[in-house]
Design a protein around this nucleic acid. Structure first.
Length: 416
DNA sequence: CGTCCACAGGAATGACGGGCGG
DNA sequence: CCGCCCGTCATTCCTGTGGACG
């Protein structure tokens, strides 16, 4: 405990002294929109052309934008809309823009509330029917006579949970408006998201479509370079470190978000160690830490029975990795349940849980046939034993189980 | 060459909880 | 506020199957 405090003291001291690494850490956050977006010139121009008619008071086409995470969709849309709003103010066009993240908003109501507040309509946080708030939105829009451009980010998240009703209403809203027009920019991470939409909505919404391709390693390098200039002091970032960040992120579907995370975490690690330069070594460590944190969180947030299954695999794996079949796991799982006074699930269900863990990458399973001795699944751990120990030793309910001695397994071993 | 093991994994059904319309 | 509906999780019952063994 005392050691921890000392470590913290050091961190605080560093912080108070002022960073020797970071000039401006903010620009490495992924919600930051830079002034310059390398390698997205085409996309910016295209979106600019699509939305430009709004400046002359005519409505613009609806747009649907796809692309995986970290391909610059959000940044490009925010960038273009900001410029557009600026220009509109300059020339006195009645253009209003609104950017909503649907996943963060969570419900139709809150999306609509965001739209309302962007045209200066006050609505209560909650309490109104969705239809009511929609009417208010429409009435005020009409009376103000504006060209309204709505960007709905992570629109797939809202559709998956709530259905496409809101989108349907929004695409039809122009029919009842004379003075005003609404245009929609939909942004989706999911390429198959179109399948979830009502064809009528889809045809209205996708008057224009844009697909954002993943960045290549070289492109990522340019992006990182731009940000690094602002984020770090001169000479802090080694070229090798930057290249490695780009390469690692490129191998992971060209995710700029990941690349920036790597750079930021590498910087934090260097800072904490008191080093003056960010090296490839720091980046590797950052990669491990990000990876570790993700796995750690995913295990920690598992439902109880999934944890118990994982724990069973862990224990068997520790004793005898060659004997890790579904039946063995289930027996041990039953034992542990009894130990902990938890009523166990059926084998069918546990088999399903094993599959879920397999999909998550926490387990590796493959079907094997033992001929005369049946057909089953051989299961291994997908992550290091260390990290599983870390998670479970933090949890009071499980702490004592990690050193549990399986009865059924040792018995069977004695048999043979 | 058929048998039969030890499961895989599909289908139907039930229990539960949370949101929604009236 | 209540009943209703829907989605999720779990159980039950089921059919399917690769290959060593006899």
């Amino acid at each position: 405990m005392r050691e921890r405090e000392n470590i913290l003291d050091e961190v605080f001291a560093h912080f108070l002294k002022g960073s020797r690494i970071f000039k401006n850490r903010e620009v490495l956050r992924h919600d930051y929109v830079p002034d310059n977006l390398p390698h997205r010139r085409e996309e910016i121009l295209r979106l600019g052309e699509i939305t430009a008619p709004a400046l002359k008071g005519s409505p613009c086409s609806n747009v649907l934008i796809y692309g995986k995470t970290g391909t610059g969709k959000t940044a490009v849309v925010k960038f273009v809309l900001n410029k557009l709003a600026q220009k509109a103010e300059e020339v006195g066009s009645p253009v209003k823009v609104c950017f909503v993240n649907c996943r963060l908003a969570g419900t139709e109501y809150r999306v609509l509330a965001a739209l309302c507040s962007s045209i200066n309509v006050k609505v209560p946080f909650t309490g109104l029917a969705v239809g009511e708030i929609f009417d208010r939105f429409r009435k005020n829009l009409e009376s103000q006579g504006i060209i309204f451009i709505v960007a709905l980010d992570e629109i797939d998240a809202l559709i998956k949970i709530r259905g496409d009703e809101l989108l349907y209403e929004l695409t039809r809203i122009n029919e009842g408006l004379n003075q005003s027009k609404v245009s929609i920019i939909g942004i989706s991470n999911d390429l198959k998201f179109k399948d979830l939409l009502d064809p009528r909505v889809l045809s209205t919404l996708s008057e224009e479509e844009m697909v954002f391709k993943p960045y290549t390693a070289d492109e990522l390098q340019d992006i990182l370079m731009e940000r690094a200039k602002i984020a770090f002091y001169d000479g802090v970032l080694s070229e090798g470190a930057l290249k490695l960040c780009a390469a690692l992120a490129a191998s992971e579907h060209g995710d700029a978000r990941r690349a920036l995370d790597l750079l930021r975490v590498a910087g934090e690690i260097a800072e904490r160690k008191g080093d003056r330069r960010i090296t490839e070594e720091h980046v590797r460590e950052a990669q491990e830490r990000i990876e570790h944190d993700q796995v750690y969180e995913s295990i920690k947030s598992l439902p109880t029975h999934s944890k118990l299954v994982l724990l069973s695999v862990y224990l068997i794996n520790k004793m005898d990795p060659d004997r890790c079949f579904t039946g063995d796991i289930y027996n041990l799982y039953l034992e542990i349940c009894e130990q902990m006074g938890i009523s166990p699930l059926t084998q069918r269900r546990v088999s399903g849980l094993i599959n879920e863990l397999d999909v998550m990458g926490l387990l590796n399973s493959r079907i094997v046939s033992l001929g005369r001795y049946g057909r089953t699944k051989k299961i291994g751990l997908g992550v290091s034993r260390r990290i599983i120990m870390d998670v479970f030793s933090e949890d009071d309910r499980f702490r004592y189980i990690i050193s549990y001695k399986p009865k059924s397994i040792s018995l069977r071993q004695n048999d043979s």
